[in-house]
Write a protein that binds this DNA or RNA. Structure first.
Lengths: 231, 231
DNA sequence: TGAAAATCTTAAAGCTTTCTTAAGAATAAG
DNA sequence: CTTATTCTTAAGAAAGCTTTAAGATTTTCA
């Protein structure tokens, strides 16, 4: 069973840290963000299955964030708020949140609500699970449709090329040696397969880069390996 | 759009009647039950999309009812309770409820929570609502009438062809391997049935595509599988 | 029930795309 | 300037998709 990831977003670090402990205890993966902007970025770069979102944050308030998240991904959002007014709850729910919890909250109740959302989310089969769009600048990876887009335009990749991009995008910014890439994508030990990978890299660049000679996304780190740069 | 039905179950007739008014105002169909047994019966006899369930009822308490409902149908359950203790909430949610509201509650907040559950329930569609029309560009699937239309014109598909289209339309944009398609549509393990699916794909294309050589809807993703493209 | 029609399955051939390999060119680092 | 590393190109081999056709099976309707 694959691990489910929760993004916790609150400007109060104490709350974030506390929630992290509870969530990890329930065996969820935890990602942390302290502003709405950070939340949106985390969403683009990682596979996330549920969001706990504070509604009062600097930079971007939770409601706006909720709307933007809804536009991009259809994952459960639970709003956590200091406002316990009914009108705020109603507004939050109508803006697309799936649940609304007021501070101070009982962490165990919150965990039960997280579980409840996850249950429904995963009930529809793991089919819906491996979806979501990962982004870095103009480069987008749509794992549901097995599609890669650059500045909105669909790029046609072969299965191997696609596999390499998925691996690098799922580990955005990390550098991997050719051997590591081969082992991950081919799922077998790399024995003198250096050049094979190089050729694939070459062809991926030809497809996704404006100027393959000076790659914007698929970067080489001399003597070490390759990565897709984080934007 | 089809009407969504809510089953309201509470032994307090005043509450049931009040909720009925609010729900009808939101354009939901309303069914009423005053005991757990009646609720289960209503569930068996009518198409119901969400349940509002009081937790303290004669004959059968709400928690037991929740469990029995969950066993039969996978529809959203919102528990309404006089108990506002956190432990009760947590118990209710863990027993399979999707939300928990304490009395006295703000009816508008409750409506917002109903809407929120319905939104998710109908968004993922597939398993939940067995009717309704799915669309992608000019391609329409009317599950109620078991009909497929292209630019308004009815396309006559065979049962197997229809099954494949339903599966792919219910997971619009997702790519599935031939083996996955076979297993989902035939409901049995695919053993060397690769070509069977391919032939059906071929014939579906002949019927729904303007130019089967360059399919607009039923796309192949080389080395991976097929999908119906999202427009 | 029996014949006709419709649908499904299987096999095989042809076509297209993708992968790998190898060898030489280009580039960065010291 | 030398060496190690990466990039590029091309071509044959392998893998995957499409199409056709014919026989088997199921459904329909008289």
């Amino acid at each position: 069973m694959e691990r489910l990831n929760v993004l916790v977003c609150d400007d109060d670090t104490a709350i974030v840290d506390a929630l992290e402990i509870y969530l990890k205890h329930e065996n969820y993966g935890v990602l942390k963000a302290y502003t709405g902007a950070q939340a949106l970025q985390a969403l683009a770069e990682h596979e996330i299955h549920l969001i706990l979102l504070d509604i009062m944050m600097p930079e971007m308030d939770g409601l706006s964030a909720t709307i933007r998240i809804r536009e991009e991904r259809n994952i459960p959002i639970i709003i956590i708020s200091a406002k316990s007014e009914d009108t705020d709850k109603i507004a939050g729910l109508n803006f697309g949140a799936d649940d609304y919890v007021s501070k101070p909250f009982n962490p165990l109740e919150l965990m039960a609500r997280v579980k409840s959302q996850m249950r429904r989310y995963t009930a529809l089969g793991s089919i819906a699970l491996k979806s979501g769009i990962l982004k870095s600048g103009g480069l987008e990876l749509d794992r549901a449709g097995k599609e890669v887009r650059v500045d909105g335009e669909i790029i046609r990749l072969t299965p191997t090329e696609y596999g390499i991009v998925v691996f690098l995008m799922e580990n955005l910014g990390h550098v991997f040696s050719i051997a590591q890439i081969y082992e991950q994508v081919w799922n077998e030990p790399s024995y003198a397969a250096e050049n094979t990978v190089a050729v694939h890299i070459r062809r991926i660049r030809e497809k996704i880069e404006i100027n393959p000679r000076e790659p914007k996304y698929l970067k080489v780190v001399w003597g070490i390996g390759y990565k897709i740069k984080k934007y």
